[in-house]
Amino acid sequence: MSEPPSDVELVRRARKGEEVAFGLLVERYQRSAYAVALSVTGRHEDAEDAAQESFLVALDRLDECRSPERFGGWLMTIVRNRSKNLVRRESLREMDELPFGAPSRIPAPDRTAEAAELRGMLREALSELPEVQRQVVLLHDLEGWKHREIAERLDLPCGTVRSHLHFARKSLRAALRKVPGIPELMRVAQ
């Protein structure tokens, strides 16, 4: 079985307008882009908008990506900036700072009321964390990125990533522990 193409190869081909190559980059990073956007915006709809727009911005500026081997980190920087801009725009529009985890304009479809309840609690618990801790815990425990990958792509030392992850998990556990019946809810989510 052949190795999946590297980021360097895909970026080189995408620069020439190869649709398949750009599609593979989107497929490879769409989940992490969403996770990073969600950690900044706190709302599904905003995270979706910011993540999708970031891919388009990245394509427009692909020639500015000087180290294609670090495409992931470069893209995550774009996602963070787009997300922050979006939050700022939303805040100005609504003349009120939106707290992390405020309900979406159009909520994501819920399979069950329990899953929705768990989602609400998670948003609230995540809103208590600093932004960088939200990013680290979402990329690691939701997207399955390794410490080294997170360190490279968020431009943080590996030890700092571990530390953020430790504190984020501790805070999340503490928040979730307060809620009765959480293990059952988590089984519903699984």
Binding site: E27, Q30, L38, A108, P109, L118, H140, D141, L142, M186
Partner: peptide
């Protein structure tokens, strides 16, 4: 891989594909 089962299970609820398999 070092992921925390409990936290990962909880966070999975935030994955838009959890309620919509064709989301991605």
């Amino acid at each position: 891989s070092g992921r925390d089962h409990e936290i990962a299970a909880a966070l999975a609820a935030l994955d838009p594909a959890s309620g919509d398999p064709h989301y991605w």
